[in-house]
Amino acid sequence: MKYSVTTYPPAPQHPVRVLDGVLRYAPIGDLKLETGGVLPDVVLGYETWGELNSDASNAVLVPHALTGSTHVAQGSSDEPGWWDGLVGPGKTIDTDRFFVVSINMLGGCYGSTGPGSADPDGLPWGSRFPFVTIRDSVHAEARLADQLGIRRWHTVLGGSLGGARALEWAVTEPERVARCAVIAATAASTGEQIAFAQAQVAAIRLDPDYNGGDYYNGRAPVAGLGLARRIAHITYRSEAELQYRFGRTPQPGEDPLGAALPAERGRYQVESYLDHQGTKLAGRFDANSYVILTEALMSHDVTRDRGSLSEALAAVRAQFLVAAVDSDRLYFPEQSYELAAALPGENRVHLISAPIGHDGFLTDVLQLRDVLRKDFFG
């Protein structure tokens, strides 16, 4: 598989109403980064659904997860969205009433400036793309909100990396977030979460085709990216789900004890499942973006340069909803309780009951439908 450098069409105008669920591009200029560098000529990819009202009070921001895209919901095309059950006409986040925006995170590969984008000389950034943080992305997204005429979000909500971005929005731009939902996410990445992430990044960097990140004129490191996805996917699913679905069952037609050499043996079904997940992601995602976004999530810490967690959260103005998946073994529910306890006022944790594990924030998010309608979108 080969990747080519990403270039962008001319910047569109921003009418009040555009086609729902269509990727658009917005140039936001040079961006100063937390590390002190400057990323020039930044472009953000984004999609919208619904219509911004006259006082821009109905805007909802939905950040995506690590390998997610801006396509939250089905729009003018038939392509399904990753939160279709939650966002759309007549749904919990009703696009007949609300103007929904999703922005590809800085460093991503679904429309925003990232390692596969052209630098000012027209060459792919590759290994020269700078380290970016979630806080950097929030600063960039705030500029896009300005261009769209949105001074304050009615709600910012997301899960996993999207939840971390939602929380960072509420802390970095407290006057611009009225309501914030943090789902299956934490206030800071823990040592264990960083360890899982480091193994994924190492898998990509150790692929000979990675070439230090400069592979855009050659073969992409699909083996390393596929291995990274295997590692990640194990953390996204629970032990109980893997045991129930696969257990020790061999892949049909294959015998795990059917060869004298390990490399020639048949696979278990769970191995075939992980192979499928790795191949699927490697076919749609850029390895460099996976590294950039993973390391941004590793750096996630809303207390950085802000004191204790309670001190960091003291300035927030948003009404909060904190939710966790009860079977999550990547972002433990206890970490959501810690976040809720540190927020100003009384904040309970809403548990999504799902045997699947962390990915329950995607598969079972409709369990939050009633509380979201009551507290945010009624």
Rank of each mutant, 00 (worst) to 15 (best):
A11P: 05
V18C: 13
V18E: 14
L19C: 06
Y25K: 04
P27E: 10
G29L: 08
D30K: 05
E34N: 13
G36V: 10
P40E: 05
T48A: 07
N58W: 11
P63C: 08
H71N: 08
G75V: 01
G75I: 00
G81T: 05
G85I: 05
P89M: 06
G90M: 11
V100I: 08
G107P: 01
G107C: 02
G108L: 00
S112H: 04
G116E: 07
G116D: 07
G116V: 06
S117T: 10
L123P: 01
P124I: 00
S127C: 00
S137P: 01
W153K: 05
T155S: 14
T155Y: 07
V156K: 07
V156T: 14
G162K: 06
E173D: 13
V177Y: 10
A181P: 04
A184F: 09
E192S: 15
I194E: 10
I194P: 08
F196A: 15
A203L: 01
L206R: 14
P208K: 00
G218E: 06
I234L: 15
R245D: 07
A259E: 15
P262S: 09
L274S: 02
H276W: 11
T294A: 02
T303P: 01
T303Q: 06
R306Q: 11
L309A: 03
A314N: 05
A315R: 12
V325R: 01
D328F: 04
L330T: 05
Y331M: 12
E334F: 10
S336D: 08
Y337W: 15
N347C: 14
I352M: 09
F361S: 01
F361T: 05
L366Y: 02
K374P: 02
